[in-house]
Amino acid sequence: MTNNGQFREGVKDALPVVLGYLPVGMAFGLLARNAGMTPSEAGLMSFLVYAGASQFLAIEMIYKGMTWLPIVSATFFINLRHFLMSSNLSLYFKKTRLPVLGFLSAQLTDESFAVAISNLPKVKNSPPYVFGLQITSHLAWVIGSIGGALFGPFIKISEYGLPFALPSLFICLLVFQLKSVRHYGIMVVAGVSSLFFKWALQGNWYILLAALLAGGIGAVIEIINGKEKTGADRQEGDGKQGQSSKLKAQRKTLRKCLEFEAQRRISRSRIEL
């Protein structure tokens, strides 16, 4: 696919995220305005920081009159969870130049990560796809924020099921990940431990801790059970150098057929269940 085609594909896949970001961005803009920020400040923060939870916390702290140091440190800890997401995505950008990586990673969010990992064949070594996905989501966030700051009081952002757009997105993408019994096990471990960590600890540590715990358990199980191939490995499999492009194309087609067949079997076995 051409760069342009990949980019457009990314824009298209971002639309469910846009549906969630516009109302949440508006809520942010509205609250930022209430906390004494101007619409341009709210817009600038959404453009440069682009991290939902931290921004909501920041305006609350600004409202309470706190200075930059506690706000910036709180932001740092909330966003440490992206460390794990960035590590995971790094597997698929071996051939990408550093400045491009800087650009891509600056726009990494929970939502764009979730969409990206559900479309790995499109993501692999394809910055234009990820760029299209992320710039569209980012724009929705910035436009929502400025819109909320300007017109917030006149818009009903909690109507039409909009508060459930992002939860739906995450649930659906989680379902797409559940490819084996082991994945269900990981889901239960991560889910239950995240509840515990959120209940036991202040702040946003629960995502990082639960993911490390469950991911770690998964890794141990994989190692004990030997070299069974995971999804990530299958995607990585064609990375050897010196292959002709024709061979690569053939492999791609073969892989698509295999994936299709696997999908078909999965859905059939589910019906039988």
Binding site: L101, Y206, E222, D233
Partner: peptide
Amino acid sequence: PMAFLTRWVVPERVKMGLGYVPTAILSAIV
């Protein structure tokens, strides 16, 4: 992580460990 891990040959075991990260992260969010 992107900057360093893309420039580093990731051992198979680390890769296997990262394989479950998406499921784990999404569950911990949901």
